[in-house]
């Protein structure tokens, strides 16, 4: 089991909140994401197809010194595998986008063929890792361990649910940044703070005020700056991963606090 798959196991094992997905920049997420097992063959074919298509673009570049790099994105947006990985494991979804742009930027910058091919290799690795993650998610889905993907908005209600939702939204921040949608990523950070974190920070202050202050700074300064400085997907991901650790701690604190909270009546 590779590193990514291990991460998926951990993720699915603690996956408690309902997945809620709305229409996104890539179109509606259709019902196949709730029946992954029936579509695994199709996803595998799509990954092979993508791999071939991406190779085709790079081969053309290697031969002619130029290629239509926009095709990379068009190919990626054509496949159902896109929404399968997007709904099941956003971190790899972000890595795929990072890989696509790695190849695209290398082509657009006129890099040597070897550089472009190295980026292609990373992209292909991300694609196959993504397929592995979807296969694993399919197994968990069959066992009823993965919540149904909702195609309409559903709000978390308890503190731990809110934390889970924040973590997912932060993964999407990395994904949107990897898609070069900087404004979307920044807005998502802002909305996640206002619409989610502010609702739980009151309870957290009593439990660990410094942790709340730290996360406030992450939401309002560190992460937006990492995005606006346009450094790299890895840098943005590093900030998010640091936040995820803090959010895990916050979640544990909220769970404990709720257990001892007095009843209303």
């Amino acid at each position: 089991m590779n590193k990514i798959s291990k991460k998926v196991v951990v993720l699915l094992a603690v996956f408690s909140a309902t997945i809620s997905m709305k229409a996104n920049a890539n179109g509606e997420i259709s019902e196949h994401v709730n029946n992954l097992s029936a579509h695994l063959t199709e996803y595998a074919e799509e990954v092979t197809w993508l791999s071939d298509k991406f190779s085709g673009v790079v081969n053309e570049y290697s031969k002619k010194g130029k290629a239509d790099s926009d095709q990379l994105i068009e190919f990626w947006e054509e496949v159902d595998f896109h929404s399968a990985i997007e709904t099941q494991y956003v971190p790899v979804y972000a890595t795929i986008w990072q890989g696509i742009y790695g190849v695209k930027v290398a082509i657009d910058s006129g890099e040597k063929a070897a550089v472009v091919e190295a980026e292609l290799l990373k992209l292909k690795q991300a694609l196959w890792q993504g397929l592995g993650a979807v296969k694993l998610a399919a197994q968990y889905q069959q066992k009823g361990l993965v919540p149904k993907v909702m195609t309409t908005e559903q709000e978390p209600t308890t503190g731990p649910e809110v934390i889970d939702d924040i973590k997912k939204k932060l993964h999407r921040v990395v994904a949107k940044y990897a898609e070069k949608l900087t404004e979307v990523a920044t807005t998502l950070v802002h909305d996640t703070y206002l619409q989610r974190f502010e609702g739980i920070e009151g309870a957290l202050i009593e439990l660990d005020a410094e942790l709340v202050e730290d996360l406030e700074k992450d939401f309002n300064v560190t992460l937006p700056q990492a995005i606006s400085k346009d450094t790299s997907v890895d840098n943005v991901r590093a900030v998010v991963e640091t936040m995820q650790v803090k959010l895990d701690k916050a979640r544990s604190l909220l769970v404990k606090a709720e257990e001892s909270r007095k009843s209303v009546f």
Partner: peptide, 9 residues
């Protein structure tokens, strides 16, 4: 949205 969890309680 406000004190989400507590209102929910």
């Amino acid at each position: 949205r406000g004190e989400g969890g507590l209102y929910e309680n």
